[in-house]
């Protein structure tokens, strides 16, 4: 065994070494290995990713609602001219600090909690959190009880109050069920790396919205979160949100 190495042996050695290096890389930063390779369409999502957003309220421009328009367009969120009952997946909120009078503005949508109250209260399990952190409504199970809307601290959800036709193929929606921001799940499943709202914000030149993988230490969002201050809305509730804000 201690003689000269045959070509086969050296091949084996290199092969085993390679596996070792691969394993080391996988253990050292398991996430990178996963991200490097796009998920194929028949592969299930895993907890190796957690999708989230970082929103810089300082860059959210006055009078701009490009993100809202893009979301409505992307997901076919059409209204009936009845603001009380029409769905809103994303909205802009203007804030004024009572003590100082400072004003700011931000887009508000489903915060994709790690511990979502809507999922806790849903009687049928229609509200659920996907392994990669996206909180969704399975409209096949939704009976329209609206308990999730009572439970959501962010008013992120809308109930569909009337018949809808000609839906977008990527965003099925129908009367009598509840819906909210899907974090453009159909884009993520295709391997895309941005949401419609981020694209619109970037295109408008504001760059207030950044989408990415919170579990990938090398993603831009993780790097910024590691180096810049950010907050979670109603962080006191301990829900560990996927959407973080800066400047409030």
């Amino acid at each position: 065994m201690s003689k000269e190495l045959t070509p086969t042996d050296s091949y084996r050695r290199r092969f085993l070494g390679g596996i070792g290096a691969l394993a080391a890389a996988a253990f050292g930063s398991g996430v990178i290995v996963n991200v490097a390779r796009a998920r194929s369409p028949d592969e299930a999502v895993t907890g190796n990713q957690r999708w989230g957003m970082l929103i810089d309220t300082g860059k959210c421009a006055d009078g701009c609602d490009e993100c809202v328009k893009a979301c409505n367009d992307e997901n076919g969120v059409t209204g009936h001219g009845r603001p009380e009952t029409d769905a809103q997946w994303i909205r802009t909120v203007t804030l004024r600090e009572k003590a100082t009078g400072r004003t700011t503005k931000l887009p508000m949508m489903c915060q994709h909690c790690e511990y979502p109250p809507c999922v806790d209260v849903c009687p049928t399990g229609a509200s659920f959190r996907r392994d990669d952190g996206i909180v969704l409504v399975d409209k096949h199970l939704c009976i329209g009880c609206r308990y999730c809307m009572m439970a959501c601290p962010y008013k992120a959800r809308s109930f569909i109050h009337e018949v809808i036709m000609d839906q977008k193929h990527n965003a099925p929606r129908g009367k009598g069920t509840v819906e909210s921001c899907t974090l453009c799940v159909h884009r993520i499943d295709k391997g895309e790396t941005t949401t419609a709202c981020q694209d619109a914000c970037t295109k408008a030149g504001h760059n207030a919205i950044l989408f990415g993988d919170l579990k990938d230490p090398n993603s831009e969002i993780s790097k910024r979160l590691a180096n810049e201050p950010s907050t979670q809305v109603r962080g006191d509730l301990g829900l560990n949100l996927g959407v973080r804000y800066q400047g409030i």
Binding site: V45, R130, I188, K190
Partner: peptide, 9 residues
């Protein structure tokens, strides 16, 4: 599979 696991085959 599609809704819960993101399988889009």
């Amino acid at each position: 599979e599609t809704v819960h696991q993101g399988i889009r085959s």
